[in-house]
Simulated scan of single mutants.
Amino acid sequence: MRLNHYTALFFALASPIVMAAPADDIRASLDQLNLPMQVQSISESPLDGLYQVQMDSGRIIYASADGKFLVQGALFDVTDGKLSNLTAAAEAKAIGDALNKLPREEMVIFSPEEPKTHVTIFTDVECGYCRLLHSEVDELNALGIEVRYTAFPRSGPSGESAVTMESIWCAKDPQKAMTEAKLGNTIEQASCTNPVAKQYELGMQLGVQGTPAIFLANGTLVPGYKPAKVLAEQALANQ
Rank of each mutant, 00 (worst) to 15 (best):
L3S: 09
Y6G: 05
T7L: 12
A8H: 11
A8C: 12
L9M: 05
F10K: 05
F11D: 08
A12E: 12
L13W: 05
P16F: 07
V18T: 15
V18Y: 14
M19K: 15
P22M: 04
A23T: 13
D24S: 15
D24P: 06
D24R: 15
L30F: 14
Q32L: 12
N34F: 08
N34R: 14
Q38T: 15
V39C: 08
S41K: 15
I42Y: 11
S43M: 10
E44M: 14
E44R: 13
E44V: 01
L47C: 13
G49W: 04
Y51P: 05
S57G: 07
G58M: 04
I61T: 02
I61A: 06
Y62F: 13
A63Y: 06
S64H: 09
A65L: 00
K68G: 07
L70E: 01
A74P: 08
D77I: 01
T79Y: 05
K82I: 10
L83S: 00
L83D: 01
L83E: 02
L86P: 05
T87L: 07
T87R: 05
T87C: 02
A89F: 01
A90H: 05
G96P: 13
D97P: 01
A98Q: 14
L102Q: 12
L102S: 04
E105V: 01
E105N: 14
E105D: 15
M107F: 10
V108D: 14
F110R: 08
F110G: 06
S111Y: 12
P115A: 04
T117K: 04
H118W: 08
H118K: 13
H118V: 01
T120D: 03
T123A: 08
V125G: 06
C127Q: 00
C127A: 07
G128W: 05
Y129C: 01
C130Q: 08
S135D: 11
S135I: 00
V137A: 10
V137D: 08
L140Q: 14
N141D: 06
A142G: 11
L143N: 10
I145Y: 05
E146N: 10
V147L: 14
Y149Q: 02
Y149W: 10
T150H: 04
F152C: 04
S155V: 07
P157L: 03
P157E: 04
G159V: 09
E160D: 15
E160I: 11
A162W: 12
T164V: 08
M165I: 07
E166C: 08
I168A: 05
P174Q: 12
Q175K: 13
K176H: 04
A181M: 10
L183C: 09
G184P: 12
N185I: 00
I187S: 03
I187L: 03
I187F: 01
Q189E: 15
A190P: 06
S191L: 06
S191C: 06
C192L: 13
T193P: 01
V196N: 10
K198Y: 01
K198F: 01
Q199K: 12
L206I: 02
G207N: 10
G210W: 07
G210P: 03
T211K: 00
I214K: 00
L216G: 07
N218R: 06
P223R: 15
G224A: 13
K226Q: 14
P227T: 04
P227L: 12
A228K: 14
A228C: 10
K229Y: 03
K229F: 02
L231I: 01
L236K: 15
A237H: 11
